[in-house]
Simulated scan of single mutants.
Amino acid sequence: MTGTYEIALVGTGGIAGVHAGDVATLGPRARIVAAVDPEADRLDAFADTWSIPHRYRSLDDLLEARSPDLVDLCTPPALHAAQAVECVRRGLAVLCEKPPALSLAEMDEIAAAEAAGGGTFATVFQHRFGSAAASLRGLVGDARIGRPTAAVCHTLWYRPDAYFAPSWRGSWEAEGGGPTMGHGIHQMDLMLSVLGPWQDVTAVAARRFRPTDTEDISAAIVTFESGAVATVVNSLLSPRETSYLRFDFEHATVEVEHLYGYRDDDWRVTPTPEHADAVAAAWADGPAGRPSGHAAQLGAVLDALDDGDVPPVSTADAWSTMELIAAVYASSFTRRPVRRGEIDPDSPFYRRMDGTGAPWMPKGAAT
Results as ranks from 00 to 15, higher is better:
151 A>L: 04
260 Y>T: 09
116 A>D: 13
20 A>G: 10
70 L>T: 05
275 H>M: 11
294 H>V: 15
134 A>C: 03
243 S>F: 03
228 A>S: 08
324 L>M: 12
64 E>M: 00
32 I>Q: 04
61 D>S: 12
222 V>G: 03
38 P>E: 08
272 T>E: 12
258 H>K: 01
158 Y>I: 09
160 P>V: 05
317 D>Q: 14
233 V>K: 02
287 P>H: 09
237 L>D: 02
144 R>L: 00
292 S>F: 02
27 G>Q: 03
289 G>N: 06
180 T>N: 09
339 R>A: 15
139 L>I: 05
359 P>F: 02
19 H>G: 11
337 P>H: 11
6 E>R: 14
276 A>Y: 01
34 A>R: 05
309 D>K: 13
154 H>G: 01
346 D>T: 14
274 E>W: 04
301 V>W: 08
312 P>N: 07
231 T>M: 11
93 A>H: 13
70 L>S: 08
90 R>H: 09
159 R>L: 15
261 G>I: 01
322 M>E: 12
108 D>H: 13
298 L>D: 07
162 A>I: 00
315 T>G: 14
304 A>Y: 06
202 T>A: 11
360 W>L: 07
12 T>F: 05
261 G>E: 05
259 L>H: 13
241 E>M: 15
305 L>D: 09
122 A>Y: 01
7 I>M: 00
360 W>A: 07
136 L>M: 04
353 M>K: 03
200 D>A: 10
35 A>E: 09
307 D>G: 15
330 A>T: 03
218 S>E: 07
161 D>Y: 00
210 R>Y: 08
180 T>F: 02
70 L>M: 09
205 A>V: 03
313 V>R: 06
197 P>T: 01
300 A>T: 05
41 D>Q: 15
354 D>E: 14
188 M>T: 13
157 W>H: 14
255 E>P: 02
337 P>Q: 11
44 D>M: 10
294 H>F: 15
91 G>S: 07
188 M>W: 01
201 V>H: 02
295 A>W: 00
187 Q>N: 12
289 G>H: 05
244 Y>H: 15
103 S>L: 01
339 R>E: 14
240 R>T: 15
293 G>M: 08
282 A>E: 03
172 W>M: 12
367 T>V: 14
214 T>R: 03
100 P>C: 02
69 D>L: 06
180 T>Q: 10
146 G>C: 05
175 E>Y: 09
109 E>A: 15
12 T>A: 11
108 D>E: 15
51 S>Y: 00
108 D>Y: 04
267 W>K: 04
72 D>L: 14
182 G>M: 13
114 E>S: 04
8 A>H: 04
43 L>M: 12
